[in-house]
Structures are given as C-alpha cells and as structure tokens.
C-alpha cells in the first residue's frame, strides 16, 4: 500500500491567506492543487512536505478570459477546462491538441495548469505549449507580484522561479492575428507520458513567417523553447524545406536518453518528424487552411 508520509493539512480560503501561510511555513510546505503529480511523488517519498496547503477552494484562480490583448488563465484551471474552452481553442488550438493527449479524462478532471507548470516535469507538455506561445506567468507574494516569461519561469527539471513564499496565480498569453499553433505527441499507449512531443507557434504575413517558436518535451533539460529554431524561422517563407531544416535543428538541439520509451536515436528521429508536423500544421492553421 502506498501512502504519503505524515503531514499537516490546511485548506486555504484566499490567495492572500495561502501565501501568508506559505511564507510562515517556508520550504516545509507545498501547495496542493489537483494533486495528481504531487501525491504520487509523496507516495514514493520523492516529495516529503510537512504541510500541505490545499488551494482547491480558491475560486478566484479558476478562469479563462480575454483581457488587455491577452488570454489570461487562472492557475487552478483544470486540464478539462483547457480542453473544453472554445476561447482558448479559437486563439490557440495547440492547447486542445496537447490536452487531448495529457493523461486521461478522469485525471484531467483534477490536474491543473498551475500544478503542471510548477511540477516542471521534463516530460510535461504545458511548459512547451506556454513557452512556444510566448506566455508570461504571474507570481504573487506577500509584497506584490512579478511577471516572468517562460524562460525565466522554467528553470529546469522540477525547478521553477516560484519561491517558497510565492504562488503562481495566472498565465498570460498575448493574442495576435495571423497566428497558428499545433502540438504533436507520440506516446506508447493512451494516457502515457510522451516519448517525445513538439509544439509550434507561428505568426504569418502572407507566406512569410514573421516569428515562430518550437518547444519539445521529454527530450532533456530546457527544451521548452528552442532559440536556434526561432532564429531560423524568423522572416523565412514557409516551405517543406524550412520545416525539415527546423526539424533537423530541433533534433540536434535536445538531449534525449535511451530508456524504456525508446532509444536516443529514435527520440531524435521523433523530435525531427514531430517538429516538422507541428510546424506544418501551425502554418496551415495560420493561413486558415486547417481547423
């Protein structure tokens, strides 16, 4: 039987109170959102918090809305909400692509975007999704809030910019016209972690990619945003040749490891092919040729 080690449990009643509690308890405490990453880690003693602060009652963190030229997503929005949101789909279909393949529908009823980003698992999909879209994260503390981009937010595997006395409260994504986005993932079986996944976002002027980003998951550290690929894409005319070049560069820019999900060579092949497919699809969407 797997159960977590003993801890104290408290249910937060507001964001302010939750942050104050966290500031008081320091690194012995963790927030618990959906719990579908943290509780398995606690069962395995990979995480051993002495206090859990349950933030599931914080209704102020459940929303997906359009405001000030951005889509703003409350950190407690569940995977199911992200999958179902027409607003999100209309602006960023990459979310629906990714969410369809994150775990399974029952897990998606509980897991949250804030929890996924803060867990920062190297095989987690939403960090790459948010990074390719140029998202920023709102991090609150007792003294105020700061807004950081995904590069600053996602420090490395299981590590983010969120400090002991802070909380990720909102994800902001700038909306722009003529954009397109897509996510491609290969998994061994339904609901499994990715063998490799690739997200792509592009902004177009006619056939020209004015800006584009690609991020990968499950192929090593810090691949959620590949700068080299972004530099390659900027100002180029969309073509199959360009997608292949981007794919080859993506495959060379990651560090997959051989494990029971596949060999390093196979994963590099997937990084290449999935980058090509996600870019192709993102461009087709930007040009209104595909839903």
């Amino acid at each position: 039987m797997q159960v977590p080690a003993p801890f104290e449990y408290e249910r937060a009643t507001s964001v302010e109170q939750a942050i104050a509690l966290r500031a008081k308890l320091g690194d012995e405490a963790r927030f618990i959102a959906g719990g579908h990453s943290l509780l398995p880690m606690m069962k395995l003693r990979l995480a051993n918090p002495e206090h859990l602060i349950d933030i599931n009652d914080l209704e102020e963190l459940f929303y997906i809305k359009e405001e000030a030229g951005e889509i703003r997503i409350g950190a407690m929005s569940r995977h199911r909400d992200l999958l179902d949101s027409e607003l999100l789909y209309q602006h960023f279909p990459i979310f629906r692509d990714a969410e369809k393949l994150i775990a399974d529908p029952v897990v998606r009823n509980r897991g949250t975007i804030g929890g996924s980003l803060c867990q920062a698992d190297p095989a987690e999909d939403l960090s790459a999704v948010c990074a390719t879209l140029g998202a920023t994260c709102v991090i609150k503390s007792e003294t105020g809030e700061r807004v950081v981009d995904m590069k600053e937010f996602h420090v490395g595997p299981y590590e983010t910019a969120v400090g002991d006395a802070e909380m990720l409260t909102e994800i902001r994504i700038p909306t722009a016209s003529n954009g397109g986005s897509a996510y491609e993932k290969v998994e061994r079986r339904a609901g499994d972690w990715a063998v490799v996944s690739s997200g792509a976002s592009v902004w177009m002027d006619g056939d020209t990619i004015t800006a584009g980003r690609v991020g990968l998951a499950a192929v090593g550290d810090n691949t959620t945003q590949l700068d080299g690929v972004a530099e390659l894409l900027a100002g180029k005319t969309a073509s199959e040749e360009l997608y292949t070049q981007a794919g080859e560069l993506a495959a060379a820019s990651c560090s997959p490891q051989t494990d029971n999900r596949g060999t390093e060579a196979y994963k590099r092949h997937l990084a290449m092919e999935l980058t090509r497919r996600s870019l192709r699809r993102a461009v087709a969407r930007a040009q209104g040729q595909e839903a």
Binding site: R11, I32, G35, L39, V106
Partner: peptide, 10 residues
Amino acid sequence: VKSCTTLAAM
C-alpha cells in the same frame, strides 16, 4: 475522480 490520488481531506 481517482480516489487513490485524492486525499480524504480534499
């Protein structure tokens, strides 16, 4: 919801 990954407290 999967009750093996939810606390009774939650």
